[in-house]
């Protein structure tokens, strides 16, 4: 059981309003990802839910029960910190057992649960080491272990993978997703990496300066970004945005076309330009194309085996059904 509801939750630090009144509903068992640029208030929002910060006004409900004034320990949530926050002077076993010890469980029960968590997370061989003697990925797993033994109503993760190298990050991403599949517990996951958001989430919450810009499944956000900010934030490489006469032809202020929705044609085409950078990834090639009359180069995704190179002239035609239109306020037009 772990549905979490925020009603008009607001947070001020002194006079600065970091989170303007905000509504959000998180269903039981959902994997929710908060994404947004640095400093937009993701951590603050998570800490409000955890109870590590007090809300300035508004109401938080966990499991339908008011939790606004509950201390962190009473909310039944577990958090994994960016720095892992392991207790350096305790062995892995004691770290994982700590919440159980605080809950007053007997030693036998503690041991049983620690062993079980260690087996789930492949930590059995490391139980008697100190955190300082573990690799980054192992520490991460200990931090997760410490949170799962309590069987919390929901897990909160604050950028848990940002200290890991790229390969390990992909591995841990899978492990966390798998853990969610197995436990079916609500998880709230903060990241600024939109790839993590797209791959892991059931539901993405896009934040900007404390505002919720859009809430939806990864594909909804990809297909129907509600405004220019979401359109630019979700998808990699970024969506190409064009104004002026190109947009006027579609009766709007701005049009957006994702790099993967630009077709390369032999001749003609809406846009013609020169390739200034080509990035070969093997499976795909990304061209950055300079187009006369446009400020920013346009990004195009092409097949990995395509024969075009730096300096070549290229003709482009956007797929008509994949053109996103936005009005002068940046909002999406149907």
């Amino acid at each position: 059981m772990g549905n979490i509801t925020l009603e008009k939750v607001q947070k001020k630090f002194g006079e600065t309003e970091v989170i303007p009144p905000l509504d959000l509903a998180i269903e039981d068992g959902e994997f929710v990802v908060f994404v947004g640029p640095s400093g937009c208030g993701k951590s603050t929002l998570l800490r409000l839910i955890a109870g590590l910060e007090d809300v300035s006004s508004g109401e938080i409900r966990i499991d339908g029960k008011p939790a606004t004034d509950l201390p962190p320990a009473k909310r039944g949530l577990a958090m994994v910190f960016q720095s892992y926050a392991l207790y350096p002077h305790m062995s892995v076993r004691k770290n994982i057992a700590f919440p159980l010890k605080m809950a007053g469980l007997n030693a036998e029960e503690q041991n049983k649960r620690v062993e079980r968590a260690a087996a789930v997370l492949n930590l059995t061989d490391y139980l008697d080491r100190r955190p300082g003697q573990l690799s980054g990925g192992q520490r991460q797993r200990v931090a997760i272990g410490r949170s799962i033994v309590r069987e919390p109503a929901a897990f909160l993760f604050d950028e848990p993978l940002s200290n890991l190298d790229a390969a390990l990050r992909v591995g841990m991403r899978l492990e966390i997703t798998e853990l969610h599949e197995r436990l079916k517990t609500t998880m709230i996951y903060v990241t600024h990496d939109q790839v993590e958001a797209m791959t892991m989430a059931d539901k993405i919450v896009v934040l900007r300066a404390g505002h919720v810009e859009q809430v939806g499944s990864p594909l909804e956000l990809y297909r129907n970004p509600r405004n220019l900010f979401v359109a630019g934030f979700i998808g990699s490489p970024k969506m190409n945005l064009m104004t002026g006469e190109h947009a006027a032809r579609h009766d709007c202020t701005t049009i957006g076309v994702r790099p993967e929705h630009m077709r390369i044609v032999e001749e003609g085409g809406t846009f013609t330009g020169r390739i200034i950078v080509s990035e070969h990834l093997g499976s795909d090639t990304f061209f950055h194309v300079e187009i006369p009359g446009m400020d920013e180069p346009m990004t195009v995704r092409a097949d990995g085996e395509i024969g075009l190179r730096h300096g070549d002239t290229i003709h482009l035609e956007p797929e008509a059904r994949q053109i996103h239109r936005f009005d002068e306020k940046g909002l999406r037009l149907a």
Partner: peptide, 22 residues
């Protein structure tokens, strides 16, 4: 590290336990 104290707080440690164990 203040995150250690916060982690302990989330783990249900009282003020005294935070002092004694952390």
């Amino acid at each position: 590290d203040s995150e250690q104290l916060e982690a302990a707080e989330m783990d249900g440690a009282s003020a005294w336990s935070r002092f004694w164990y952390i």
